[in-house]
Design a protein around this nucleic acid. Structure first.
Lengths: 108, 108
DNA sequence: TGACAGTATATCATATTCGACATATCTTTC
DNA sequence: GAAAGATATGTCGAATATGATATACTGTCA
């Protein structure tokens, strides 16, 4: 349930033996991560569908390969803004993006 | 249609006699604004539903009255991130937020 | 009218995010 | 298993977003 998921999420990126038992994440913070991750997945899906590399996509949207990699990884340094902007600029519609977000945190 | 909407949008904030005829906005840029605006509207709607002031909301989510005002105004200095974060922290679900975004640019 | 609560706008120091670059780690394909 | 192409990770200066503060505007009520 909630707690279990929280644990899984926070474990990623934390070495055993750390001072904190696990990251304290509010429901809102978790939901935000879910949103970011679902957009990240959608971006990767879209890119692969087009059969292009991260570098090509980066060039196409005016960014760099490393940033695209981070976008698709749902890296914390990537804002939802950037994800949405990127998706829109490769042809996704607000409608599609909305649907993706609406499903965030849902089925794997 | 598209061009007309573009004209309306860009006119806001431009004085007559400017060098540019009108701001050049790509479809993606327009869609991004639509998303921002729809989230802004949703925030205001939610806040009013709760019958609280911008100041109270600000305090509740750890921000300032002025920033809340800008959020609700869809000010360019406000990121989609902040809007989503704020909505989530006042109890909106990803599902609801997704729906709002999916409808962006739709009916007035 | 004037006081008052709410909202808008401007500005600023700080914090976060960005593209870029370098470099490391996969993945194929031969 | 070397070479090549793709993807991941770390860092940095510049750009942008943020909360805070000050102040102006807008009702509304007495």
């Amino acid at each position: 349930m909630k707690t279990e998921k929280r644990r899984r999420l926070s474990r990623a990126g934390w070495k055993v033996g750390d001072t904190q038992e696990f990251l304290e994440l509010s429901d809102a913070e978790m939901a935000l991560i879910d949103v970011r991750v679902s957009l990240a997945r959608e971006l990767r899906r879209r890119r692969r569908l087009g059969g292009i590399s991260q570098a090509t996509l980066a060039e196409r949207v005016g960014s760099s390969q490393s940033r695209v990699a981070k976008m698709e990884a749902g890296d914390p340094s990537v804002s939802i803004d950037l994800l949405v902007r990127t998706l829109l600029s490769i042809g996704s519609s607000a409608r599609e993006i909305g649907r993706v977000i609406a499903r965030a945190g849902g089925a794997t």
